[in-house]
Design a protein around this nucleic acid. Structure first.
Lengths: 246, 246
DNA sequence: CACCCGATTTGATTTAGAGCAAGGACGGAT
DNA sequence: ATCCGTCCTTGCTCTAAATCAAATCGGGTG
């Protein structure tokens, strides 16, 4: 029942805030997020409808089937998005990271649930407000559309991964994808942060926790990676990529 | 090497065509397609950039990896969209039917191939022209974005289907999905047209041809469906839905 | 009509990964 | 330091679906 915590704003919108003084100005992930479509002069408009919130690790802040009243942009931390079947089987449809937008794939109700893997920072938008912004700013809609088509590309690649590739290929491809995503946010590194649990990787890759564990162990035994807490270190980039490419 | 055939237009755009006289006016699937976003007075603009084409059964008209110079709207027939791995494994990422749009999930190059399952009618647009139209008409972009988010919802459901459901559940869900799609186009029917081959269903569902065949045979033996050439007849809707729902 | 060829079905066997059951590692609470 | 709970790993067994191998069906063609 834990819900997300709405962070109080030091300056209300209607108060005497000086022009240019807003959160979005100093946002570290603005250039990655949908917000990058808006110029500096438009930021106050964005700032006036954004609600800065946080979600504690392990809390669910989007519930599959509920009326979709908000959309979110992730500023910090990692979110897992998943679908649940009636008998408890789960498919993780994606991990959202800083700069990612949540709320593309929805109609009136959320088609998935979302929870914080670690402590997460979010910009929440009322769907109505967000819709008005889209209508007023076609270039913003365009950016959103680019995000949607990019998500679609990722989803189709994931279908191929799950439908046609072996456990080892899936795990290797996952590691490389995570590495590239972190690189965009934090810059390149041989250490791939994996804040999610093994079961999350399994539910993302259409495998079981045991298979993921065994596969990582095998990659480590083969000298391709080194398993460390919350991460893996890449030892043999070439071979890892070769496995992922199939 | 067979390429799509560009159909000659009886009226060139620059010629003395009377206002209101264009293909889109009489298009049977306009209300289903992206084109529905444009009012009657805007149709000539659409008509001026559309190229009516056909693709014979079995011909490939989008090649994965090639520069994406066109986007398409399907007016007739069924198209299979797929990704190929270097060793020949194939994942069909979707079947496009009349009203569907091809060209959402692309950047500079096509990320998938497409070929005609049966004879297909297509509206082809030059990407540049299409882009100009989008820029000029925000409501058209909006419609396109709705198509993209809808595709994304479908893709995420497919991920769940492939990643977490049994062969029988996959086949049952596929049959029901096909039935609903035909219903939108042609109206409801107990006969589900299946113009694609077993191997296409298999590659769509992440299974093998033998498993698809056996599963259909089992559904038929259980009195849930009747297998007929190019289609199946639904005999027990309730049980079919129950299997698909999991 | 007989033949051919591709698609599909069916049967027999194998296997990748699932499922089950212990251990082990690690972090937080007492 | 010890206990406890969660997560992760490992070993063993089982099974759903893959793979291999024939039939069988059906539509076109000479």
């Amino acid at each position: 029942m834990t819900e997300i915590i709405e962070v109080a704003k030091p300056h209300g919108h209607a108060c005497g805030r000086k022009p240019g003084e807003n959160y979005c100005d100093t946002c570290k992930v603005r250039s990655l997020a949908v917000c990058a479509a808006l110029g500096a002069e438009e930021l106050p408009e964005l700032d006036s409808i954004v609600h800065h919130t946080r979600a504690d690790a392990k809390t669910t802040f989007i519930h599959q089937g509920e009326t979709a009243e908000s959309v979110f942009s992730v500023t910090e931390g990692v979110v897992r998005l998943y679908k649940l079947l009636s008998d408890g089987r789960r498919q993780i449809i994606g991990f959202a990271m800083p700069g990612d937008f949540l709320g593309l794939a929805l109609h009136n109700r959320y088609g998935f649930s979302a929870d914080a893997v670690d402590p997460v920072g979010l910009c929440r938008f009322d769907r109505r407000d967000f819709d008005n912004l889209i209508t007023a700013k076609p270039h913003f809609l365009r950016r959103l559309h680019e995000f949607a088509t990019h998500e679609l590309v990722i989803a189709q690649e994931q279908m191929t991964l799950i439908g046609r590739r072996s456990a080892e290929e899936r795990v290797a491809a996952f590691l490389i994808a995570m590495r590239e995503r972190w690189a965009r946010i934090k810059g390149p590194s041989v250490t791939i942060q994996l804040p999610m649990q093994r079961i999350d990787m399994a539910d993302y890759l259409g495998l079981t926790i045991e298979t993921v564990s065994r596969t990582l162990t095998k990659l480590a035994r083969d000298g391709i990676i080194l398993i460390v807490p919350e991460a893996v270190r890449v030892l043999d980039e070439k071979r890892l990529a070769a496995i992922a490419r199939s």
